[in-house]
């Protein structure tokens, strides 16, 4: 059971990749085969089971696109 849950708001994400870089679990990636209505490749969680809810990604996100929940 994952300790944390990370949700991305696709309409706010600009695919900058700063969250990918700071995730200690290395479970965030950029969806290269998908384009949002704004024309960006958005970030997503590759393995939600490993999320600890540390919120590093959300703290780093310049577009406030990430919501983090934790047990």
């Amino acid at each position: 059971m994952a300790k944390g849950k990370t949700t991305f708001d696709e309409l706010l994400c600009k695919g900058c990749g700063l969250c990918v870089e700071v995730c200690p679990q290395k479970i965030i990636a950029i969806k290269k085969d998908y384009v949002t209505s704004k024309g960006y490749h958005p970030a997503y969680v590759t393995d939600s089971e490993k999320c600890t809810g540390c919120a590093n990604c959300a703290i780093m996100c310049p577009d406030s696109a990430i919501t983090v929940e934790r047990d």
Partner: peptide, 18 residues
């Protein structure tokens, strides 16, 4: 689960031009 980080209400819902 409880929310530990979300968009601040000190910001509007507008997506920035940055």
């Amino acid at each position: 689960m409880s929310v530990v980080y979300q968009k601040s209400r000190g910001l509007t819902d507008v997506s920035t031009h940055y």
